[in-house]
Lab assay of single mutants.
Amino acid sequence: RKEMTAACTPRRRIINLTSVLSLQEEINEQGHEVLREMLHNHSFVGCVNPQWALAQHQTKLYLLNTTKLSEELFYQILIYDFANFGVLRLSEPAPLFDLAMLALDSPESGWTEEDGPKEGLAEYIVEFLKKKAEMLADYFSLEIDEEGNLIGLPLLIDNYVPPLEGLPIFILRLATEVNWDEEKECFESLSKECAMFYSIRKQYISEESTLSGQQSEVPGSIPNSWKWTVEHIVYKALRSHILPPKHFTEDGNILQLANLPDLYKVFERC
Rank of each mutant, 00 (worst) to 15 (best):
G116E: 03
L155V: 05
R13Y: 15
N16R: 12
E185M: 02
E250L: 14
E33M: 13
E26L: 12
V126S: 03
K265I: 15
W111Y: 03
K130M: 14
E188S: 05
T9S: 11
D181I: 10
N259Y: 08
K68R: 09
L153Q: 00
N49I: 09
F97D: 02
K246R: 11
Q203I: 09
E217M: 09
K2A: 12
N65E: 10
Q214D: 08
P107S: 07
C270Y: 15
K227W: 10
S109W: 13
L69P: 00
K246Q: 12
S19L: 15
I151H: 05
A53G: 12
K246P: 14
K132A: 04
L64A: 11
Y62W: 05
K60E: 15
R89S: 12
R11S: 13
P93A: 06
P93R: 04
I14H: 07
L39E: 14
L156I: 05
A175Q: 07
H241K: 11
A175L: 15
M196D: 03
I242E: 15
H247K: 07
E37Q: 11
P168Q: 02
L88F: 04
R201N: 14
R89P: 11
H40A: 06
I171Q: 00
F187H: 03
K227T: 04
C270F: 15
I200P: 12
S106W: 07
L174I: 02
F82L: 01
F187K: 04
I169T: 11
V126C: 05
K192W: 09
L190P: 00
Y204S: 07
L88R: 08
E123C: 14
G120C: 15
V34E: 08
V266K: 15
E3W: 15
T9Q: 09
E188C: 05
D251I: 15
N84F: 14
L155N: 04
L121K: 01
V34S: 08
I79Q: 14
E185W: 11
V48F: 11
K184C: 06
N49Q: 11
A237R: 11
F197T: 01
E193F: 02
Q215E: 11
E165W: 03
L21N: 02
I169R: 03
E183A: 02
M101A: 09
W228S: 05
R269L: 15
R36K: 05
M38H: 11
I242S: 14
P117M: 15
S22P: 06
K132C: 02
R36Y: 13
L167S: 00
Q56F: 03
P245F: 15
E71T: 08
L63F: 09
I222R: 07
V34L: 10
D98C: 12
T9Y: 14
E72T: 06
S225V: 08
W226E: 04
R269V: 13
D115Y: 15
K236L: 02
E127T: 03
L153M: 05
L54W: 05
E33I: 13
F197I: 02
T5I: 14
G116F: 15
K2N: 14
P163C: 07
L174T: 01
Y160N: 00
N65Q: 13
C8Y: 11
Q215P: 09
F82Y: 04
T112S: 05
Y264G: 02
L99F: 14
C270Q: 15
L39C: 12
I14N: 06
G220F: 11
A237K: 07
A237H: 09
E71C: 05
E26T: 05
V230G: 02
F82Q: 03
G31T: 10
W111C: 15
A6E: 11
